[in-house]
């Protein structure tokens, strides 16, 4: 087990290195000149040239890549071109809102989707089943920003139940403002995940319900509910955990859009702003961090398998 973990951790290194090289060269060859943007609308070309030189943007690719990599290995993600602030600090400021949004979204999605999936499997073949599945396909098909605007229009503007935008940092003494700000974004972002997880749960439950031991339990006279929740759900945990691992990238992607619709100061908005401004160090830092997180999450998911399913051994 321990050797397995070590092996897996080492295996992530080439992946992250490939991402680093990829994202660095991508942005190196990108057009759009940060120096011109910094200098502003009314600067002369000579000014732009001097700013470019002072930022070190005029040096060759290899030099810049190795310099950057060396810094990254030492934990230094560089300094934002525009704000002169350390990238790691800018990312750190943005982690709490993004993490809050994602955790709340997952909590919401799982707590809605699992009962829905179980219900659909239980009432397999009835109109309830079909309704749940139609609902799932529907939410899978509507873009997250459309759901976001619809929710904001209804629940914030018309009914005034929740604020339209913003983020309040979490506090133990009064978590309500934090929650109020996140309800609509989490619901908007969660739609697609409800759909995904509900489908997985249903499928797994159907498979498990047809297994011999369940039939045996039923035959022994164990009533429906304990069967569903004790036996079946335990087995359903594995695919659900898997989907969280796979869906993590989608969750980040969705968070980017959701954060911009609801003006949440998260990592996603940071990187979209940076891309539109061509603030290379931020883009590189965030993408590297996110893919590293993705790799870690999937590592954890693999390890969780052993927890939920004792049959899997490494």
């Amino acid at each position: 087990m321990f050797a397995y973990i070590i092996r897996r951790v080492i295996a992530t290194i080439p992946v992250v290195a490939i991402v680093a090289l990829f994202i660095f060269s991508l942005l190196y060859f990108a057009p759009g000149d940060p120096a011109a943007i910094i200098a502003g609308d009314q600067a002369t070309p000579a000014d732009v040239e001097r700013i470019r030189a002072s930022l070190g943007l005029d040096r060759p690719f290899v030099v810049r890549f190795f310099e950057w990599s060396w810094q990254v290995v030492q934990g230094n993600l560089g300094v934002s071109i525009f704000t002169n602030l350390p990238v790691s600090k800018m990312i750190a400021q943005r982690i709490e809102p993004s993490l809050s949004l994602m955790l709340l979204t997952l909590t919401f999605a799982i707590s809605v989707a699992v009962p829905l999936g179980v219900l659909a499997a239980w009432k397999h073949g009835t109109w309830i089943d079909r309704l749940v599945m139609m609902f799932a396909v529907f939410f899978f098909s509507v873009p997250v920003f459309v759901v976001g605007y619809l929710l904001a229009y209804t629940f914030a503007l018309q009914l005034d139940w929740f604020p339209v935008q913003g983020y309040t940092p979490f506090s133990i003494s009064d978590p309500w403002p934090w929650l109020r700000n996140l309800v609509l974004p989490a619901a908007a972002l969660g739609g697609a995940f409800v759909a995904l997880i509900a489908r997985i749960t249903r499928a797994t439950m159907l498979e498990v319900l047809s297994q011999d031991y369940i039939r045996t339990a039923r035959a022994k006279g164990v009533s429906q509910r304990p069967i569903l929740f004790m036996h079946a759900l335990k087995n359903a945990a594995v695919p659900i955990v898997t989907i969280i691992g796979i869906g993590f990238a989608g969750l980040i992607g969705g968070a980017v859009v959701t954060e911009s619709v609801f003006a949440i100061p998260g990592v996603g908005r940071l990187v979209v702003d940076a891309i539109l401004r061509r603030d290379y160090p931020i883009i590189q830092g965030v993408v590297l961090m996110l893919s590293f997180t993705y790799v870690l999450v999937n590592l954890c998911v693999d390890l969780l398998y052993t927890l939920f399913d004792p049959r899997i051994r490494y």
Partner: peptide, 18 residues
């Protein structure tokens, strides 16, 4: 200064007293 890039959201935040 609260940066809200989306005009619709900004308008709503102003109307709502945020």
């Amino acid at each position: 200064w609260h940066v809200i890039p989306d005009p619709s959201t900004a308008a709503a935040a102003l109307q709502g007293g945020e």
